[in-house]
Simulated scan of single mutants.
Amino acid sequence: MTKILVIDDHPVVLQGCRRVLEDAGIENITLASNLIDGFRAYRNDKPDVIIIDLAIKKGVLVGLTFIRRLRVHDKHTPILVLTMHEDPMIASQSLRLGANGYILKDTSSVDIVKALQAVRQGRPFLSHTVASAIALMETKGRSNPLSGMTLRELQTLELIAQGKQYAAIAEELHVSYKTIANTCSQIKAKLGVKSLPELMRIAIDHLPEMAGQRTK
């Protein structure tokens, strides 16, 4: 019997997922409204598929944290992201971290079941609009040195382009100074630059293009 774990902080979404799954003949369904309960349910129930939102309890994409932590010790349990975020960079980041599917919350019940079946069988599944946006982003990004950056790296670059120093960036992103210093070191390594002025120049030159891709 297929076991499904659904993690979302909106009761309406949780109950809606339950109805969709039950209508598809799935009865073993566990619902969790936060990451702590989600991890506990995962350990106790060993679900066949995990369906998760990205923004839980007003956290900034904390669902990505769940995916990353789970993949440290579990490379196999399929993860299907069900979210309102259409941004292809967020979708791409989710897939890089280990999600097997990515669908939007306005997806039809039929396609939700199709997505669930696909990831359960080891096949990836993306909402059509998200798949198209990722393809367009990757095509345009081939000439953009920032196309391989993570969301945190892009956030950091945006603030560097504004002339902000590490301490101010750390405060704005609510992380430590050391985290920002390490992030900038990683960015420099990816771009093959050594100085902050070089980093600022690249950010100023190429971030507008990335922003244009994200809003299309």
Rank of each mutant, 00 (worst) to 15 (best):
R69W: 12
L70S: 01
L70A: 11
L70E: 04
L70W: 03
L70V: 09
L70F: 04
R71Y: 09
V72N: 14
H73I: 08
H73D: 14
H73Q: 13
D74V: 02
D74I: 00
K75C: 04
K75R: 15
H76T: 11
P78F: 00
P78R: 00
I79W: 01
L80R: 01
V81T: 07
T83K: 05
M84Y: 07
M84T: 15
M84K: 14
H85T: 04
H85W: 08
H85L: 12
P88H: 11
P88L: 03
M89K: 03
M89F: 08
I90W: 01
I90L: 06
A91S: 09
Q93L: 10
Q93E: 14
S94W: 00
L95H: 04
L95G: 00
R96D: 11
R96I: 06
L97Y: 09
L97H: 12
G98S: 09
G98M: 05
A99P: 00
N100G: 09
N100P: 00
Y102H: 11
I103E: 04
I103W: 02
I103H: 05
K105N: 12
D106C: 06
D106I: 05
S109D: 13
S109C: 10
S109H: 12
S109A: 13
V110E: 15
D111E: 15
D111W: 04
I112N: 02
I112L: 10
I112P: 04
V113M: 07
V113A: 09
A115C: 05
Q117A: 14
Q117R: 13
Q117F: 03
Q117K: 14
Q117V: 00
A118N: 02
V119E: 00
V119H: 00
Q121H: 09
Q121C: 10
Q121G: 10
Q121R: 06
P124S: 10
F125P: 00
F125H: 05
F125I: 01
L126G: 03
A131P: 06
A131Y: 03
S132P: 01
I134Q: 10
I134P: 08
I134V: 14
A135V: 08
A135S: 14
E138G: 06
K140C: 10
K140D: 08
G141D: 02
R142Q: 13
P145M: 00
P145Q: 11
L146K: 12
L146F: 13
S147W: 05
G148E: 08
M149A: 09
T150N: 09
T150S: 15
T150R: 07
L151F: 02
R152K: 14
R152A: 13
L154E: 08
L154F: 05
Q155D: 12
T156L: 07
T156F: 11
T156D: 05
L157N: 07
L159C: 04
L159M: 13
I160T: 05
A161S: 14
G163E: 08
G163C: 09
G163Y: 09
G163S: 10
G163I: 03
K164L: 15
K164Q: 15
Q165W: 07
Y166G: 04
A168F: 02
